[in-house]
Simulated assay, not measured.
Amino acid sequence: GSDLRAVYAGFSAKGAVLAALLAEQGASGLGTLFEGPNGVFPTYFASHDSAGMRAGLGADFQGGATLYKRWPAVGTSHSHMKAAIDIVTAEGIAPDEIAEICLAVGDFHMLGCTPLEKRRAPETLVDAKFAMPFLVAVAIVRRGMSVADFAPERLRDPEVLATAAKVVPVPDPSLDWTMEMPPGRVEIVLADGRRFTATGTQVPGNADAPMSWDDVNAKFRECCAAALHPPAPDTVAKVCAMAQGLDGLDDATEILRVLTQTTANRGAA
């Protein structure tokens, strides 16, 4: 129920920017912070690879490999969502034809399924984004997901809630999270007795199915539409073009100026 889930990463980003600005002004740090007798590594890790951590530092920028999620919910639910979408799309299944939705889940998946009744009908936006039965139900009903699906009225959508009530988690130790999270598996049972099973692969935004610029722009437009004061369509289009041509801009913050100025103007109006 906490809203902190939506902002905590900002504190890490703020700390990184502040550290860079302090270093730029000549402020020095502790040379023993990480590897000194009481440093971070000796305190929290049994062993560490200093050389490996420094390899390529300043030359190999890992940010270029950043992946963007197509669906605005916890990533560990996406393979189950994709499997469910694949089934209902391929078979042309309507939600009211479904009798049961069985989710094969490992230990970490199960966290998003308990307590089951609350995960089927979450009461807040933050809870909904981590409630696997609800997320799979949205994916089935909408054949996808957007940020609009987490508006207060959408959390009470009777078709989504009726579909979520049919979701049953089935423990499967082979899907426990050890190193890489195994893809989820879904079985949909219809009222007429037919059964369809799929494993969630080629999840939009994953390394094997990265988002295209069209996908990124579509998600950005969805987010803009959910703003208190949505920017004008021409502004959204301009920002999308600026982001795609980011390496040609003299100042990357110009994107924010364009977006916030026009949004503020619309809010004042």
Rank of each mutant, 00 (worst) to 15 (best):
R5W: 10
A6K: 14
V7N: 09
G15F: 06
A27S: 04
S28W: 01
S28D: 02
G29L: 02
G31W: 00
L33H: 00
E35S: 10
N38E: 00
G39H: 00
V40M: 01
V40G: 00
P42F: 00
Y44R: 00
Y44W: 02
A46T: 03
S47I: 01
H48G: 02
H48P: 00
D49M: 01
R54N: 08
R54K: 14
G56P: 04
D60P: 01
F61V: 13
P72E: 10
A73Y: 09
G75T: 15
H78W: 15
S79H: 12
M81I: 07
I85E: 15
T89I: 03
A90P: 12
E97C: 07
I98L: 04
A104M: 12
D107S: 14
M110F: 09
L116H: 06
E117W: 04
R119V: 01
R120C: 03
R120H: 05
P122M: 04
E123C: 04
L125V: 04
F130M: 08
A131L: 06
F134H: 15
L135Q: 10
A137H: 08
V138C: 13
A139C: 06
I140K: 12
V141Q: 05
V147L: 11
D149M: 08
E159L: 14
A165V: 08
V170M: 13
P171D: 11
L175K: 13
W177T: 11
W177A: 09
M179R: 13
P183G: 05
I188R: 11
A198R: 15
T199D: 03
Q202K: 15
Q202N: 12
V203G: 10
P204D: 09
P204G: 06
N206S: 15
P210I: 06
D214Q: 11
E222I: 01
C224V: 02
C224H: 04
L228P: 00
P230W: 04
P231A: 04
P233N: 04
P233T: 03
D234R: 03
T235M: 01
T235V: 10
V236A: 09
A237T: 12
D247Y: 07
D251N: 15
T253Q: 10
E254N: 11
L256P: 02
L256R: 05
V258L: 14
T260W: 03
T262K: 13
T262R: 14
T262C: 07
T262Y: 05
G267H: 09
